[in-house]
Design a protein around this nucleic acid. Structure first.
Length: 643
RNA sequence: GCUGCAGUAGCUCAGCUGGUAGAGCGCAUCCUUGGUAAGGAUGAGGUCACCGGUUCAAAUCCGGUCUGUAGCUCCA
């Protein structure tokens, strides 16, 4: 008998050779039906693999990331099997599971395949599912593996096998399809109840643009048809919320070929939104002791040689700017930190002055490959809500906590209720590639971990993910559709204080080196606005939205009164606009609904006589008539909830 | 940057195998003066991204450029 320990800590006894499927059956029928694979002593294995000694076993279902992964990996084999039947003679690259589904890289050779063929492929896949084709594993020698794939002209597989060690090679068979694969897999295809091919894309063999380009077939699969339908609805919804579409519709920003690619231009409404965000953060920062500065958009090349950015990024940056007469060399500012270091250096500092918190909405310019550009999220010119905190090593934790508080306030005001954090620490097994003393690293890493604990922030610790100059804490938010976005970041830096020889005088009268903390709660205004648009679908919170109301006079006769009302509301610190078009009220309402004005104020004869307005909420409908004061109170009330 | 796909009116798009352009929305003018998601009429608006080629003839076919877009190890 052997002892099997389950995730809840309970232990059960089984005959040696028991399989994970047996274990599932012994627990419950339902579990046996839903189990996909098992994690045995940390290794994910098939359900039919016998367990011969004491082990910790976790049964994996669709609800486990690893279970999903196995499900999709097997689905990739299913896709390949179907493709092989439909297009004999094609060659296979790799076919892994990914975050949302899976793909297979295929060399289709003479075949022309397009998305028109998707239904045919999906149908073939479901046929193989219905045949309950088993997926079986066998171990093979390297020579045998090379022969099998060599004979078939599978050049990509042969290349992969050549990189593998003899004795660790396994094949998986499913019907007529055999794949080189580490596994693990489902027992057979039958749990796969719904498949959907998503798109085709070119992908270089092994990501190398000098090697052949294969066709990557992206797909996703589910254990229930209903889940596929939900997923497809979510994709549709995501498309509708695309910030590039909504940004255009709401007139927030534009791009111009003539101005240059990746260079966003903020239109009046977008500028209004962005300035309001900036004002909001500025106010909080003031409360937290930040001082605002402004620095030029270019800086002497020497500045970036000192900072090390020239050496690191010079080749991948915009080319330097030179003066016509003296040949001086300047660079477009890729970061604000060097400028801020010079501000610190501008005068001597006592330990009593620290921390010094220097903030700037600093526009920076970075050369991104043209293929990397994407709406507002990946651009060549963007504005960071940047700040640098110069502090003593013993102040790091306190400063972290304060920055975390700022981030919390922001997320709350913008209804990002779902967020998590990642702590990036250095790789403990290789500390040589980092700058800064071991003592300072230990102090800062501990400070971050403790700060998260104190703030009750669920944070995932990743070793080896730190920058070479210091550990960091990144914030990820989940938007309304459950998509994850990385926004704010707090980073400790030992490098720049060293390079710029920053100093303060300690209580001992000696010179000491300050620690620098970089932080940007929004990340960049561009990226943040993009995420905000997708999160809210363009229906911004009331405190932020460019126009809180639109006044809709029932007929042109009441325009004058409408204008008076607008002024009155503006005097009450509300902002909005007025629709004076010669249109019927139904039409004005429809247009205002589509333009996402939070409140529509309808003004006709009745309201004018009563001294009221008829209030309509976007997406919710008529709220009835009330005085302008009562309306202002509603707005104020709603804003107060998040601020 | 590389590869695929795309670029037609301010916007969204139609235009089959070549015969020099169309719709809806928007805009302008006029009629209509209206109660909670589209009132009506008339009109203006296009070097079919740009450059070159094939052709009697190019939005349409070919080549190049520009811009947009999807993807470019998440490792058998």
């Amino acid at each position: 008998m052997i002892n099997i320990t389950l995730p809840d800590g309970s232990m059960r006894q089984y005959e040696a050779g028991v399989t994970p499927l047996d274990i599932a059956k012994s627990i419950s029928e339902g579990l046996a039906r839903n189990v996909l694979a098992a994690k045995v002593n940390g290794n994910i294995l098939e359900l039919y693999r016998p367990i011969n000694e004491d082990a910790t076993v976790q049964l994996l279902t669709w609800n486990d990331e690893d279970g999903k992964h196995t499900f999709w990996h097997t689905s990739a084999h299913l896709l390949a099997s179907a493709l092989q039947e439909l297009y004999p003679g094609i060659h296979f690259g790799i076919g892994p599971a990914i975050e949302n589904g899976f793909y297979y890289d295929i060399d289709f050779g003479k075949y022309e395949v397009s998305s028109d063929d998707f239904p045919k492929i999906e149908k073939k896949m479901m046929e193989l599912v219905q045949a309950k084709t088993p997926v079986t594993r066998r171990e093979v020698s390297k020579a045998e593996a090379l022969k099998t794939f060599g004979d078939r002209g599978e050049v990509y597989k042969v290349e992969l096998i050549n990189d593998l060690e003899d004795g660790s090679i396994s094949f998986y068979d499913s019907g007529n399809f055999t794949d080189l694969c580490r596994g693990p897999h489902l027992v057979d295809f039958s749990p796969i109840k719904a498949v959907k091919l998503i798109n085709l894309a070119g992908a270089y063999w092994r990501g190398d643009e000098h090697r052949p380009q294969l066709t990557r077939v992206y797909a996703i699969s589910f254990p229930k048809k209903k889940e596929l339908d939900e997923y497809l609805v979510m994709l549709e919804e995501a498309k509708k919320r695309d910030h590039r579409k909504i940004g255009k519709e709401l007139g927030l920003y534009m791009f111009s070929e003539t101005v240059g690619k990746g260079l966003p231009i903020w239109l009046p409404k977008g500028t209004d939104l962005r300035l309001r965000l900036q004002e909001f953060l500025t106010k909080i920062q003031k409360r937290y002791g930040y001082q605002q500065v402004m620095t030029p958009h270019i800086g002497s090349k020497c500045l970036y040689e000192t900072s090390g950015h020239w050496e690191h990024y010079g080749e991948d940056s915009f080319r330097p700017i030179t003066t016509p007469e003296d040949g001086e060399v300047y660079l477009l500012k890729p970061m604000n930190c060097p400028h801020h270091c010079m501000i610190f250096k501008n005068e001597p500092h006592s330990y009593k002055d620290l921390p010094l918190r220097i903030a700037e909405f600093g526009t920076v310019y970075r050369y991104e490959q043209s293929g990397e550009l994407h709406g507002l999220t990946r651009v060549r010119s963007f504005t960071q809500d940047d700040a640098h905190i110069f502090c003593r090593p013993d102040q790091v934790k306190e400063e972290f906590i304060k920055v975390m508080e700022i981030i919390e306030i922001i997320f709350k005001a913008l209804s990002f209720d779902n967020f998590e954090a990642q702590i990036s620490l250095r790789d403990p097994s290789n500390t040589t590639k980092y700058v800064g003393s071991d003592e300072n690293w230990a102090k800062a890493e501990q400070a971050i971990v403790e700060a998260c604990k104190e703030k009750n922030l669920p944070a995932k610790v990743e070793y080896g993910e730190a920058a070479f100059y210091g550990p960091k804490l990144d914030f990820m938010v989940k938007d309304a559709l459950g998509r994850r976005w990385q926004l704010g970041t707090i980073q400790v830096d030992y490098n720049l204080p060293e390079r710029f020889e920053l100093e303060y005088i300690g209580s001992d009268g000696q010179k000491h080196r300050p620690v620098m903390i970089h932080r940007a709660p929004f990340g960049s205004m561009e990226r943040f606005c993009a995420v905000l648009i997708e999160h809210t679908a363009g229906k911004f919170p009331l405190w932020l939205t460019p126009d809180q109301f639109i006044i809709l006079p029932v007929s042109e006769k009441y325009v004058e009164e409408a204008q008076a009302l607008k002024i009155k509301l503006e005097e009450m610190n509300l902002r909005g606009t007025l629709d004076t078009r010669d249109e019927k009220i139904g039409r004005k309402i429809r247009d205002a609904e589509l333009a996402k004005y939070p409140f529509m104020l309808i003004l006709g004869e009745k309201e004018i006589n009563e001294g009221t307005v008829s209030v309509r909420r976007q997406g919710a409908g008529d709220l009835g008539s009330m005085t302008p004061e009562a309306f202002a109170a509603i707005v104020e009330e709603e804003i107060k909830k998040v601020m």
